[in-house]
Simulated scan of single mutants.
Amino acid sequence: MDKIRMQGMRFYGYHGVYPEENKLGQQYKVDVELHLDLSKAAAEDDLTATVNYAEAYTVIKQIVEGPPFQLIEALAGSIASRLLDIYTSVNEVTVRVTKPNPPFEVYFDGVVVELSRKRDV
């Protein structure tokens, strides 16, 4: 299966369990991998035969910058479900959400949640 990867997208959101996270917010990093057949797009140079990643970016941005989720697992799940709903040519999607600054004293690059969802056949 072919893939489109959208890597290193950064958005400001207000997700978290703690009230200060919902009030102050922080930057989130999102990576998305779309699995689909790109043979027609490659052969015909036709945008309608692929996923317009500018549009997909807008969908992802609206979710991350929209109403807050308590868990980044729920945020990633919402992104995956929405992309599968909109883009019927996508067979599987992998979403990776990084929360770089959890609200407790830690010394690492952030917490990352990665989930994959497949289209129900």
Rank of each mutant, 00 (worst) to 15 (best):
M1L: 11
D2H: 15
R5D: 12
M6K: 04
Q7K: 13
Q7Y: 00
Q7A: 05
G8A: 02
M9H: 11
R10D: 03
F11I: 02
G13Y: 11
G13C: 05
Y14M: 01
Y14I: 00
H15A: 03
H15K: 09
G16R: 11
V17W: 13
Y18T: 03
P19S: 08
P19R: 09
E20T: 03
E20W: 13
E20Y: 04
E21Y: 06
N22L: 14
K23C: 01
L24I: 11
L24V: 08
G25Y: 08
G25C: 05
G25M: 04
Q26H: 02
Q26Y: 05
Q26V: 01
Y28K: 05
Y28E: 06
Y28D: 06
V30S: 03
V30Y: 09
V32P: 03
V32A: 13
L34I: 10
L36T: 04
L36P: 05
D37F: 02
L38A: 08
L38I: 06
S39E: 14
K40H: 08
K40E: 12
A42F: 02
A42G: 11
A43F: 07
A43Y: 02
E44S: 13
E44F: 11
T48C: 06
T48L: 10
T50R: 11
T50E: 13
E55V: 08
V59E: 12
I60R: 07
I60N: 10
I60H: 09
K61H: 12
K61L: 06
I63N: 12
I63G: 13
P67R: 15
P67W: 02
F69L: 02
F69I: 00
Q70P: 01
Q70H: 14
E73V: 07
E73Q: 11
L75I: 09
L75M: 12
A76E: 03
A76W: 06
A76H: 04
G77N: 14
S78T: 06
I79E: 13
I79V: 15
A80F: 10
A80M: 05
R82T: 15
R82H: 14
L84A: 04
L84P: 11
D85A: 14
Y87R: 06
Y87Q: 05
T88Y: 03
T88K: 15
T88P: 10
T88Q: 15
V90S: 03
V90K: 02
E92H: 13
V93M: 08
T94S: 13
T94K: 14
V95S: 01
R96E: 13
R96S: 15
V97D: 06
V97S: 04
T98M: 10
T98W: 00
K99M: 01
K99N: 01
P100L: 00
P100A: 02
P102W: 07
P102K: 01
P102I: 04
P103T: 02
P103E: 05
P103C: 05
P103M: 01
E105A: 09
E105R: 04
E105I: 07
V106P: 00
Y107N: 14
F108R: 00
D109K: 12
D109C: 00
D109V: 02
G110V: 01
V113W: 10
E114F: 01
E114G: 07
L115C: 03
S116M: 08
R117A: 15
R117E: 15
K118I: 02
K118D: 00
R119W: 07
D120R: 12
D120T: 07
V121Q: 12
V121I: 07
